[in-house]
Computed example of a mutant assay.
Amino acid sequence: MVTENPRRVAAPATSRWRAMAGWKKAMIALVLMVGVLCAGLGAVGFGLKQRYEGRVQREDILGKGTVPHDERRWESGPLNLLLLGSDSRDGEPDQALYPGQRSDTIMLVHLNAGRDAATVVSIPRDSYVDVPAAGEVWSGGPNKINAAFAFGGAALAAETVAKLTGLPLDGVLVANFAAVRKLVDAVGGINVCLPYTVTSSDTGVTWPAGCHDLDGRAADDLIRQRHGVPGGDFGRIHDQQLVVRALAERVTATSLLTSPTRLDRVLTTAAESLIVDRDLDLADLALALRRVRPETVQFVTAPFSDPNLQTPAGSAVRLDEVRAPALFTALREDRVAQWLAANPQTPPAN
């Protein structure tokens, strides 16, 4: 009989990654890409379909024929996923998941042709862009990009992003980012390193520049701040990206993956936070993401030239007329790594 050596030390994180089951690797890839909110999908394609897919809501988003969409792209080559996030608070209805309300977070997730790296592009919600017509509700024309969700739900938001970027979309996910609090607590808290001081306009708490251990309530408070953070809404976007990265690091660096109870809590919370396109095959998504590693995910904010553009829709953001199209071209041509090398990301300034 073989007995286990009680003095054996735990394997390092890199070894645990190599030995990890395929569905768990896919889950981690999704953790990295959408901040744990899509984590449950990784498990769906690898034997846990009934438990988690039943918790995910479905909606016809890309089936209207207004967005370039080709199922054959799933067989090989790069993929583009659109993530729309709500920002409802405790006690408020999760209105941003439904037509008539605006989406506070817009992320374009690009998976490279080798399917071993991903780029998450945050598009400022106040970007002043062309929003296509939506029946009698909206006749079409310039407006803030998050207005598209109010006029035509996720389908019009996807059409707007596709028109802006020139990218085909291979899937759309609508996530409730209020679940971040539950997810952070589920993984036992996170450590976030801030390059600047942030003061909460809600609680008065101040986080000096440096690293901080945050529980779910503190992390939720941090990613909501727009006024007590350098760069306003751009600082908020940057803080969201920092929390996404910290969540991913926490998941890969702790025993979460070997704790069935805690893992189930994270996957359940993630699945219950999602609405996905009706035709998005979750098993195919998990399979496509199985080789993405924590260190191969990059975050970028769409370049802008004027954060205080005055428009009929109010103060808005003018995207840079040179650098933003160059980024979208780099995504279309799957050479975003070169674009990032030439355009290194820096924290927002006051």
Rank of each mutant, 00 (worst) to 15 (best):
A186L: 12
V161P: 03
V244C: 11
E4Y: 15
I61W: 09
Q101G: 00
W74N: 03
W23G: 07
H69T: 02
S76C: 05
D185G: 03
A133N: 13
Q345E: 10
E92D: 12
P294L: 09
A43W: 11
G231T: 04
M27I: 01
A218F: 09
L30Y: 14
R51V: 05
V229W: 02
R226G: 00
S76N: 06
V120A: 03
L282A: 13
C38W: 15
P208R: 09
L285N: 13
L222C: 13
P344M: 05
A270N: 10
T3A: 13
L32S: 00
D277P: 15
Y52F: 14
E75Q: 10
D320C: 04
T66A: 14
L183F: 08
L167V: 01
G114Q: 15
P93R: 15
L242I: 10
E53Q: 14
A286P: 04
V297P: 03
Y52V: 05
L169E: 03
A29T: 04
A118E: 00
H227E: 10
T329G: 08
A270C: 11
T197C: 08
T311L: 03
S200R: 15
K64I: 01
S201A: 11
P312G: 07
R115W: 09
E159R: 15
A253F: 05
A337G: 11
W23P: 00
V174E: 14
K64T: 02
Q240Y: 10
T66Q: 14
H238M: 08
